[in-house]
């Protein structure tokens, strides 16, 4: 059974087509890069997988279930913008996550927060943009989920933190989970990816392993991306 099964998914916003006839099956044990330029439909796809948006046509299944209460227990989602209450401190947010998610490993979250020098008593409101992103990623990665949906996890952080985040993703790798990372910062993450999915104007244009791209195309994922999406 695929962890994520998308069949002929179309999503319209009014008359605008955000996703058009996307079919994609993702197995466990993979780190998948969901790559596309701004506005290509990455966030729409992730929100649909997470049940925040519903398909106009077609279907989305997580662990063979329609996204809903049950799948949210198994899906760790990092949204593309802060969705947490700004007045809460690191410590309070960890308590919130521990309350909400049975699979949240608080010790792990605290250890990661210490590694990144995050103040446990600071409120989200007072944190820099980068620190906020780090904390949110920690909360998400400290869950032991079946599916991780990371929408632009490395966009707003410095290169050293980026390395730490990628190492965190690698060290958290488990063969029962699938990790989907959406980004346009491809060269930073491409060595971490098993599979690469390109979407362009709401359509899926490529689904290959990263090693296949290097072997068959003789290119880095980043080089291929620049070709496919040349403006």
């Amino acid at each position: 059974m695929a962890r994520i099964e998308i069949e002929h998914l179309t999503k319209m916003f009014g008359s605008r087509i955000a996703l058009e006839d996307v079919s994609l099956s993702l197995e466990k044990g993979q780190i998948v890069g969901l790559l596309g330029p701004n506005g290509s439909g990455k966030t729409t796809l992730i929100k649909t997988l997470n049940g925040l948006l519903t398909p106009t046509h077609g279907s989305v299944r997580i662990n063979d279930m329609t996204p809903g209460v049950e799948t949210k227990k198994r899906v760790a989602y990092l949204p593309d913008r802060t969705a947490l209450p700004e007045h809460m401190t690191t410590l309070q947010l960890m308590e919130l996550y521990a309350d909400f998610f049975a699979d949240f490993d608080r010790q792990k979250a605290e250890a990661m927060a210490e590694d990144l020098g995050i103040d446990f008593n600071q409120t989200l409101k007072k944190m820099s943009k980068g620190t906020k992103e780090k904390l949110q990623l920690i909360l998400v990665m400290a869950r032991k989920a079946d599916v991780y949906l990371l929408d632009e996890p490395i966009g707003g952080v410095d290169p050293a933190t980026r390395d730490y985040i990628l190492k965190t993703i690698i060290s958290n790798y488990n063969e029962d989970a699938v990790v989907v990372i959406s980004t346009h910062l491809i060269s930073d993450i491409e060595s971490v990816l098993d599979d690469v999915v390109f979407i362009k104007d709401g359509k899926l244009v490529l689904h290959k392993t990263a090693e296949q791209i290097r072997e068959e195309d003789g290119k880095s994922v980043d080089q291929l991306f620049r070709e496919v999406f040349r403006c």
Binding site: D163, K167, I170, S171, Y173, S191, V192, D194, A210
Partner: peptide, 14 residues
């Protein structure tokens, strides 16, 4: 494998 993958910054399957 996991330690080597982390050190090299590559996918553990690779």
């Amino acid at each position: 494998v996991r330690e080597l993958a982390m050190d090299a910054g590559v996918n553990p399957n690779t």
